[in-house]
Design a protein around this nucleic acid. Structure first.
Lengths: 219, 219
DNA sequence: TTTTATTTTTAGACAAGTCTAAAAATTTTA
DNA sequence: TAAAATTTTTAGACTTGTCTAAAAATAAAA
């Protein structure tokens, strides 16, 4: 069964919304995510239900079937691998690649994405620090350790960001903080919860706003 | 002006047909190339004419405008660069990449293809030996020297193939002849125009059928 | 140069995906 | 728990790209 780009986008939207909203997703939520009208969503949902990709009862919201979920994860996998390609090989900045990956994720091929994965040497995270699902659709959500929770003297690697808005990404670039950056907590200021940290490029002060949006792995 | 994938495919079809057919192309030819019906072609042609991408007068055939030609060449450029990527980086065989490139050529981005070109280190030919147009849409069609025209004792590099059908590509693979292969003509048989040649992997006999379909550059 | 055959175009229809406007169901609130 | 507000669905329409069948134009043949 080959899906249209549009159908794939619906599945992906439901997948990411469902994760944050305990599985059942409303028509309006989807329409907001995809910039369409609720009535259009209803139409498409009914088609997807006919194909057994979503569970659907009128007025009761939508959730993915096992097949639907599998396809959605596959698309996420493609999206993230393409992002790695764009950043690591073509020298894009991590805040520039989303739109392009949005297109590339829909390229149809049995073999392409596995070959790409091998070429990229089996990355585990995309440039925003999100895990790349494996070939079988397995994805371990990592245990959300934020920089803000570290104690004085501890060191860590940046493995992801929570708020991946454009301004935030740009700001991190300015601070020269990237995926893989190593950070050591020098001191913490109880007054505003900011912290002084040591990075490869020197020591800088980081606000709570920032430190609570950076996923890290302790060293 | 952003074109749909379909519109781009029409321009590309007209471009490649026009090259072999002295510029004016008929509705039926296009419909054969794109696997559609002539009536569909007429419809689309009229839309393209409205957008000044083709010259069109009823019953008189179609040709590309300057803008149309430019866009067509751009797509060819994308197609060929993606083919290089697939073969050189992802280890595809040259006879497997056409369909995929057919999809990738439609990815929309201002910067992607130039970055890809740089990453590939500015290749001049695709895996089938066809020239890659430059950023400005310039393409020098090389002067069609075929292996069959070489004299005894001369050496050459394979730079392209004329008949890029699947069976032919597969056959060349079997002979271990690839782009860049070096071939020296040892002897020619006047009876059937076959030739005995020396390659990296030994000396083999090549029929006229083959030698007249290989573009080469003398050394 | 008429008649015949072929090619091209028009006309009307259909599928996918979207929209607006109005009706139906659900949820909120009083 | 009944009225009001919100959400969801239906109905009908529009666009893109396609099709078939028939009409119009061109090219070939007699």
């Amino acid at each position: 069964m080959s899906l249209s780009q549009t159908e794939e986008n619906y599945l992906k939207a439901i997948y990411s919304l469902a994760y944050a909203n305990s599985n059942k997703v409303s028509t309006t939520l989807i329409s907001a995510e995809l910039n369409t009208k609720a009535s259009s969503v209803t139409d498409m949902i009914q088609k997807l239900a006919d194909k057994d990709l979503v569970h659907y009862k009128k007025y009761q919201g939508v959730s993915l079937t096992e097949i639907g979920r599998k396809i959605a994860v596959e698309i996420v996998r493609k999206h993230r691998l393409w992002e790695v390609f764009l950043v690591n090989k073509l020298n894009y900045n991590w805040d520039e690649v989303h739109e392009l990956a949005e297109q590339l994720e829909h390229i149809k091929s049995e073999t392409l994405i596995d070959k790409l994965e091998a070429f990229l040497e089996f990355p585990t995270h995309d440039p925003h620090g999100d895990q790349i699902p494996d070939k079988n659709g397995n994805i371990e959500h990592h245990k959300n350790m934020m920089l803000s929770t570290l104690e004085i003297g501890e060191s860590c690697v940046v493995i992801g960001i929570k708020d991946s808005s454009d301004p935030f990404l740009k700001f991190l670039d300015k601070l020269q903080i990237q995926l893989g950056s190593i950070i050591k907590v020098v001191s913490k200021e109880p007054f505003d919860n900011s912290m002084l940290v040591e990075t490869a490029t020197g020591s800088i002060s980081i606000s709570h706003q920032i430190s609570k949006n950076l996923f890290v792995k302790k060293l």
